[in-house]
Every structure is written in structure tokens, then in C-alpha cells.
Nucleic acid binder design. Structure first.
Lengths: 195, 195
DNA sequence: GTCTATATAAGGATAGAC
DNA sequence: GTCTATCCTTATATAGAC
């Protein structure tokens, strides 16, 4: 729909983020122009700069928001004492959270190299905190003697990489329900850590 | 080094591919200009078009060469009859092959969306063939009753995603040798399929 | 086969009117 | 807050000289 002149600060901001998110995920940050984003929102390119100082900040904001929400949502979960149960909770949480946000996840992984060094460090730090959440579960399981894991750091990265793969193929309405997918992956994770 | 005028068709072609590979992997296809590639090679931008019809063909060629070499190298391995041994062979082969070619692997996974639809289909087909190689091993193991895998298609994607993760963190000369990394991942794969 | 020069288009970002 | 207009830079790709 064509837009007419006027003041719309309350809705334009989120619409810019939505459009940038979708376009960055689909075509990549470098391949998307500010004019494309503006067209999607229904404003002229110059108007975008009322909401973001530049294109880089737009990308960084999307990634930072995503990582912060990931950490906050996980932290809000009541922590399960039993390592095995905690690992199952993490596995199912990770799959569900990521499948609900395919565009955010895609950007968070694919556009790291398009961040300035400072922004890259900030996002890497947030990602490291999330990895630590999983590794602490693995360490507890090893300490309790219920997990058989040779290297908790590598196992952490291996499990996350495996779970992230779901986003590359899962489509709602396909052969398997989300619940079934969660269970299949949990079965593999469980066995991989020797539980 | 600065280049002078002259005829160098025998060496310029490979040098263009090398430069494009490194630059695409580092900054992303869309973010790299033909001028950058030319500067890296030591020629003017126009000279590149003696070797490639356009930038897209340069990307496609790199990805196609990589996938074909992956398939050919795997096919050249004497196929192991025992499913468990075959899976170990695949796991160690995949890790080693991919760690030896970090730039090619990075591009093959990150730049799919920058391919034209025709080129995308061609690369996806090659990737599918590689996945089939692993899935056929898993199917044989399930049929022989030695693997415990709920869904061979998902297990295939899960294993490959897990193994690909190595490329994001492994650096030669680090805490672990390549042999140790292979063994740690093989241990997780082995357990994940119930072997 | 490479160079210089250029056609043609698009990019990020800003200025000033409304 | 948005628009129009524009500055300035860069992009892919081609043409013709050497």
C-alpha cells in the first residue's frame, strides 16, 4: 500500500525492523539496500534515518535483540537440578525457540562477519554466554557421573550445531510434528552424551 | 606485487579463483567487488572478464568445484562393508576434508542464497548426493540391526550439521590435534546412532 | 591478455522544505 | 516525521587501444 505524508513514529520503527529482518534473512545484509527496506515499509529511504543512525546499527540491533531474548527466555526457566532432565529441557527449548524465529536465527549466524569489530565482539559475548549455559549442564552431568563426555566444550558446540541444523530443513505442516522432531533430536543428544 | 602489461592466461585464471575464494569467504559474496578481486590478483577489473562471464559464474564455479571434489574424493574411497566401520570412515573423512578447505566449505554453506535459481538447484543436487552417501550407511546399519536410529533422514542431517560445526572453532595448533578431534566427534556420532 | 576509459546503475547518507 | 532532491562513492560490465 502506498503511504502518504504524516507522522507515524510509533509504528514505523517496528515496521522498519520487521522489514530489515525479513530482507536481511532472505537476501543477506550486504545485498539489501536501504531503499529496498524503505520500499517494503512504505516510506522514502531518507526517513529510515529517523530510526537508525546507519545500516550497521540496524543489523546490530536485530542481532542483539535476538540474543538477549534468547538468554532472557532461557534464564527465566526454572532451572532443573537433575542434569539429564536439564539437558532434555535445554534441547527442547533450543529447538522450539529457534524454530519460532527462523529469520532471527539465520541472521544471527550468517551476518556475524558484516558486523564492525566492536559489534561482533558484543554478539560473540552473548553467544558465549548461551554456550556456557549448556556447558554448565554437561559439566554437572559429568561431575555427577551420569554423562559420558570426553570434552564438555566440544560437546557443547557439537550439540548446538546439531540442533541448529533443524532450522535448515524443518517446515511446519511437514512429515513430522514439532513434538516429534524434539523427541528425535533429544534421543540423539541423550545417547551422544552417554545417558 | 604490481603487475605489468602482458599475457599470463596460464596463471591469472587460478589466481582469480584463489582471490575470489578468499575474499568471498572473508567478506561475503555481495560485499566483495570485482575491483577488489582484481586488486588482489594484480590486474585491472576489466581483465577479470577474460576468465569469467560475470561475478555469479565465479561464485558458482567455486561452489561446484568444491562439491564435485567432495563427492569424487568420497567415491574414491574403497567402500567399507561393515556399517559401523563405514560410519567411522565417513566421520573422519568429513572432518578432515572440511578442515582442509575452510574457505570452500564456508562459501558452500553461506552463499547458497546468492546463487541464481538454476545454479542453486545444481549445488543443492550435489549436496543431496553427499547426504545420500551418509544416509545409505545409516540405512544399512539399521537394516543390519547394529544402529538404533529413529529417522535416517534426520539423523543424516543431524550428523552432518554436528560435524560441520568443527569448522567454526577448530584451529591448527590448538589444544587438540586433528586426530583427537576426529576421535571425540566419532565417539559422539557412534553413541548417537546407538553403536 | 591487459589496459584505460566509460556507460549505466545503484549504493549510503544528508539537507532543507513542509 | 516524512518528503524530495542531491552529494558523493561505488558497483558490474563493456569498448577499443595496445
Amino acid at each position: 500500500m502506498a503511504r502518504t505524508a504524516g507522522s507515524h513514529s510509533d509504528i514505523t520503527g517496528p515496521r522498519i525492523q520487521d522489514a530489515a529482518l525479513r530482507l536481511f534473512a532472505r537476501h543477506g545484509y550486504a545485498a539489501v539496500s536501504m531503499r529496498q527496506i524503505a520500499r517494503e515499509v512504505g516510506v522514502q529511504a531518507g526517513a529510515l534515518y529517523n530510526y537508525t543512525p546507519d545500516k550497521q546499527s540496524l543489523l546490530f540491533g536485530l542481532m542483539q535483540d535476538h540474543m538477549r531474548e534468547l538468554l532472557a527466555t532461557w534464564a527465566a526457566r526454572s532451572q532443573v537440578p537433575d542434569p539429564g532432565a536439564a539437558l532434555e529441557t535445554f534441547t527442547r527449548f533450543h529447538i522450539r525457540f529457534h524454530l519460532e524465529r527462523p529469520d532471527e536465527v539465520f541472521i544471527a549466524y550468517m551476518e556475524l562477519r558484516n558486523l564492525t569489530p566492536e559489534n561482533h565482539a558484543a554478539i560473540s559475548d552473548l553467544r558465549g554466554r548461551y554456550e556456557d549455559a549448556l556447558e554448565s549442564i554437561l559439566k554437572r552431568g559429568v561431575a555427577a557421573g551420569v554423562f559420558d563426555v570426553a570434552d564438555t566444550k566440544i560437546a557443547t558446540l557439537a550439540v548446538i550445531a546439531m540442533l541448529n541444523g533443524v532450522n535448515t530443513w524443518y517446515r511446519a505442516g511437514g512429515r513430522l510434528s514439532l513434538e516429534q522432531v524434539e523427541t528425535i533430536y533429544w534421543d540423539m543428544v541423550r545417547k551422544a552424551v552417554g545417558l
